[in-house]
Every structure is written in C-alpha cells, then in structure tokens.
Design a protein around this nucleic acid. Structure first.
Length: 581
RNA sequence: GGCUCCUUAGCUCAACUGGAUAGAGCAGCCGACUUCUAAUCGGCAGGUUGAGGGUUCGAGUCCUUCAGGGGCCGCCA
C-alpha cells in the first residue's frame, strides 16, 4: 500500500541477491538504507542511499555498488528506470502506472490509508495539561493541551494503543490556598466584606463557587475555625475546578481517558512503595546538598535530607524526596505516579510539560529509568511559551491588570479549529507568537483556512458533478487503473499522496505532529495549483461533460485527496469543512 | 555559575533525525476573476543557515568552543 515501502522492499531484495551472488559481503546492516523522495524532482521520483551506506562496510566504491543495483532494479515492474548520480545516489523513476494506481488504493483503504501499523498495538501513555486544579486553563496550557491531544491522535492513527491522562495536583498546599479563597467567596456570598491577602486567589471565577457552596451547606461554615471546614471545602473546590477544566478542554474537543489524583498517592502506601523500590536498588540515602552555585539564596543553610541518587541515571545532582521536616517533596509523589504508570504496563510513557518545567526532565527520566530497569522509555516533550501579541505589541498576562487570557477566551474568539491548527503549525520546542488581531482580523493568513478551502473546493466539485448527472461512488473504483490521469500537475498530486504513510510514520516516531500540519498545507497547495490550471487548460478541469470516463478518473483523484486531508485534519482535531462561509 | 531549549531570506517558520543546487507564507514588484467560489494561482527578487573549529564520501542537522535570547536551579506544586 505504501509505495515507498514497496520500493524499499525491492531494493532490499536486490541487495540480498547481490549478497547471494557474492557481489556484496554477508552480514551487512541494511537498516539505514532509505528510499525517499529527492528534494529536487529533476532527480527522479525516489532516491536510495543504499550504495553509499553500504560502501564502507563492503569496502567497495559506492558508484560501483550503485551500478549493479541499478541494473538489477531495472527488472522490477514499478521502476521505469534507474540511474546513478552524484556520490552514489541511485535515482529511480517510477512508472506512471504505479502513480495512477495510488488513487485506487487510497479509495479502497479509505481512512485507513496511512495506518501502517507502526505502533503494533504497543501501549502508550500520554500525560498532558496536568494543570493545578486552582483555576481555569490559560493560553499557556492551551498549547500543551493541543499538542498532547494531537500527538495522542497521531499515535493512535499509527497503530498504538493510547491513553490520554491528566495528573491532578490535588495534594499540595496550593489546593489549601484554593479552599481558603473559596471560603472567602463563601463568606462574601453571606454578605461579609472580605479581603484577599497575598497568597490567596482573588479571581472572579471563584465567586460562583462560593455561592454554590453557600447553597450546599447554608451558613454551617460561617465563623467556624479552619479545621472545621477545610477538608470539605478543599474537596468541593477542587471538584469544581476540575469541572471547569474539563469544560475548557472539551471546548477544544479534548477528552481525557484518565484523571489520576496526586492525593490518592498519600496515605495509601504508594509513595512508600515506590521509594522502597529505589531503596532496594541502593538509590536512596540521607545526605546534604550543596548550595546551587551562582544563585544566591538568602538563608541558605545545609540540611540533611532524604535524597534520590538520580546522578546514577544521568541527572546532574541528586534530588531531595523529603523536606528537612520529613514531609515529602513534590518529587516523591511524581516518582510514585510514574511508578504507577509503569505498573499499569505501558510500553512507552510520554509527558508533555511547559518549558518552565524543563528542569525536571532529567530527574524524571532518571526515576523512570531506575524504576523500570530501563524497560520503559519516557519521552518528555516541552512546549515552549506562547507569546501573545495584540495590535503587533507583545503583552503580558496579569491576573491583576485584567489581561489574563484564558483558554476559553481564546477559543471563544478565534474558534477551536484555528487555535488548534495555528498551535500545531510549529515545532513544540520553538516559541510561538500568537497575534490575536492577526488571527482575528486577517483570517486569510491562517493556514487552516487554506487547507479547509481545498476541502471545500473538492466538495464543491462533487456538488457540481451531481448537478451534471454524474454519480461518483467509491465502490466503483476497485481494480481500475486511472490511465486518464497523465498531466504532470496531476501526477504531482499522486506523488504527494504517496508520501502520506511515510509521513505518518516519521511524525509518530519523532512525536512531532506539526509535520502533519505542514504536509496538509503542501497537499492543499498542490491541489489549489491544479485547480487554477483548469482555468487555462480545459483538459485539467475535473468535470469533463462529454467524457464520463475521464471525469470519473478525476473525481477519484480528488476524492483521494479528500481522504488524506480528512485523515490529516482528523489527527489535528480540525474539522474538514464542505463549504466556506 | 550550572542545566536546558533556541538562533535559517526584511518578518513568521519548514527542511522527512546525516543526503544532491537550503524551501514555503507574509511584506515588495509584475501578472491572472466571462472560470468547478480569486479565502486561489503564476512569475520576479530575496541566504556565508549567529561565529569559529572538528567528525566523513556528504553537516542547517552530530561533537566542541564562543556570542546572543527564552526557561529553570533545596524546604512552591
């Protein structure tokens, strides 16, 4: 189904025969042999580096190997011709028939085209967002949310069993602060005048929570000491915040499979269990950390703490898991949480953190490496900050100044599709400029419209075809070769579509969903280009009133484009539209 | 001071984990609406990939030194 894969298999077969014929030594590692589209189309349709990769080990001149391989490959049906170029590249020209058959295959496979089964049903846990349950999600969380969801979707498309997971930080002191802040709003709902001191959350979003609490418990908590109400109010408040956050996520079309409570780790022996595991590996000890050099800490004094020997697994310094008063640091439940994930038999873990958590990558990797005996791989992806712009000017978010931009504000103003696509049209580790006005006022600048417009145009053609009395049904395509598709611009589409399965694999392997977005843009560009050529050259118009055979072939072609666009947008979580408005 | 990410065209970004002459969009200039919706297309111009060194058949990509920028650095999660 994947033409590149197929050709690579041919190359590997021929290399094997060369080994059998004594033209190459035995025992060569073929894994780095690739078959790729060359950057310059003049070089052909595909190129293989086989000769250059093998030359050194085989102790032969790369061009010599390439010559032999070229001769052998010329007997393969899909290869039109092959020639050696440059230092030993082998350029292959693929028969037009092979390109024409792409459309057929895509329509037969439908949305499963590109699902190459790379993941082999391996179980992957993608943890993302995991924002503190103390308020609504803001713009910074949005990027991680979109990235994580698209990555999860991509991996699942590529054949992995994916669990989307949210780690709820409901065990630290920040949820006590939340509870106290809600309590103030509760008193306010009872008519009291309250002051929000430093260290409390003054945001308006807690007003309805305080009111709802009043409806629930009446005046029971009024003027009572903290120990009387704290536990209940904390639980009530975090539940309310998680409800808020779930609603925020669903505004972006994101649904988690699992919410894991940090609090559930305390008092259940789970933290102790994880630490015990490390202790058995001789990785826990009592010690004193040195003061960080170059950074002044006012009241620094050496203290004995319980430390995790993370340096034995690649970290720079050992990390404390207990504070000097004997309480766990935040790192301890994090270790236990990842231990739990390992215990749930995931083959691969992915964490998506904001850039401000970059300092925790090494210690988490060390912990997972130690806990799983290097069996489970943890990949931590950092999403860099989103810089917001208004009217071309950067502006900072501040709760006090009222310039706090929530995820909800963003989605309400620019929509889920634009938010998602814009944030995915960037590598995760590059900072992202998000200009509100540009996105709002000049929507034509958004690549998402460009791709959706292609989808809309295709639907438009089908509407026209129907009016012209041409019925196109995908069931009718089987075993047809569309020899009517011959123009360069059309074959270019076929070539682009042929890249799709490879692109899915690369994106999934590298955990880089942005590649999907860029690919879709390129595919849309090829399509728009062909569309406009129909203005100059009647033969390139999709609907040929007089020739239903040709029309049928062309409709099959654009239908195949639509299949891939739909799959791609599906991965990104963007709606493929049928018309623009 | 340490760790980490980044630096590619005037601007915003790609470049298929090491491949051939580094590509798009925007901005600029020229051109295409009697069309299957011009939210589109064609063309021109734009580069010492921050700087130096190294690894090899081959480097924007890997290693190293330096410069500049973001983020982080015990008892906050």
């Amino acid at each position: 189904m994947d033409l590149f894969y197929k050709v690579r298999q041919h190359v590997l077969n021929e290399l094997d025969s060369m080994v059998a014929a004594g033209q190459l030594p035995t025992g060569l590692d073929m894994t780095s042999v690739t078959v790729e589209p060359p950057k310059d189309p003049l070089h052909g349709d595909m190129a293989t580096n086989a000769a250059m990769v093998l030359a050194k080990k085989a102790k032969k001149n790369p061009r010599e190997i390439a010559e032999i391989l070229a001769k052998r490959l010329s007997n393969v049906d899909v290869v039109e011709n092959s020639e050696v170029a440059g230092p030993g590249f082998l350029n292959l020209r693929i028969s037009i028939k092979a390109w024409q058959s792409i459309f057929n295959k895509i329509l037969e496979l439908g949305s499963s085209y590109g699902q190459t089964g790379l993941g082999k049903n391996l179980r992957v846990n993608v943890e993302f967002v995991s924002a503190n349950p103390t308020g609504p999600l803001h713009v910074g969380h949005t990027r991680g949310a979109v990235f994580g969801d698209a990555l999860a979707q991509l991996l699942s498309f590529a054949g992995y069993k994916v669990t989307r997971e949210y780690y709820v930080n409901d065990g630290g002191s920040q949820v006590d602060t939340l509870a106290r802040s809600v309590y103030l709003r509760y008193l306010e709902a009872h008519g009291q005048v309250v002051a929000f001191e430093d260290g409390t959350y003054p945001g308006d979003y807690l007003i309805p929570v305080g009111q709802a609490l009043k409806h629930k418990v009446g005046s029971d908590y009024v003027d009572k000491p903290e120990h009387y109400w704290l536990d209940e109010v904390r639980k009530y408040s975090t539940d309310a915040m998680m409800k808020l956050i779930k609603d925020d996520l669903s505004a972006l079309g994101i649904k988690m499979d699992m919410f894991f409570s940090e609090k559930s780790l305390y008092g259940s022996g789970k933290i102790e269990e994880a630490i015990e595991n490390l202790k058995n590996k001789d990785l826990i000890y009592e010690g004193i950390l040195e003061s960080p050099k170059g950074k002044k800490i006012e009241d620094w004094e050496p203290r004995i703490q319980t430390l995790f020997k993370s340096t034995s697994h690649g970290d720079d310094v050992d990390r404390p898991i207990k504070k000097s008063d004997g309480a766990w640091t935040y790192f301890a439940p994090d270790i236990a949480y990842h231990f739990d994930k390992i215990g749930r038999n995931f083959d691969q873990l992915i964490d998506i953190f904001g850039a401000d958590h970059g300092g925790y990558v090494k210690r988490m990797n060390a912990a997972v490496s130690a806990l799983s005996n290097d069996k489970v791989k943890l990949d931590i992806k950092l999403t860099q900050l989103v810089k917001l712009f208004k009217r071309g000017e950067p502006f900072k978010m501040s709760k006090r100044a009222g310039t706090f931009v929530t995820l909800r504000d963003l989605v309400d103003q620019v929509g889920s599709d634009v938010t998602r696509f814009v944030m995915l049209t960037r590598k995760n580790d590059a900072p992202l400029d998000f200009d509100f006005d540009k996105v709002l006022e000049q929507s034509r600048d958004n690549p998402v419209y460009y791709v959706q417009y292609a989808s809309a145009r295709i639907h438009s053609v089908f509407r026209r075809a129907k009016e012209a009395g041409i019925n196109f049904n995908e069931d009718q395509v089987s075993n047809k070769t569309f020899c009517e598709i011959t123009h360069d611009a059309e074959i270019k589409i076929a070539k682009k579509l042929a890249e799709w399965p490879r692109l899915v694999e690369i994106s999934a392997k590298t955990h880089e969903p942005h590649r999907i977005a860029f690919y879709l843009y390129e595919l849309a560009s090829d399509f728009h280009s062909l569309w406009n050529k129909g203005g100059e050259n009647d033969e390139l118009r999709f609907i040929q009133e007089k020739d239903h055979e040709v029309t049928f072939a062309k409709l099959a072609m654009i239908s195949a484009v639509l299949v891939v666009i739909s799959s791609g947008l599906g991965i990104l979580g963007v709606e493929p539209v049928t018309e623009m408005n």
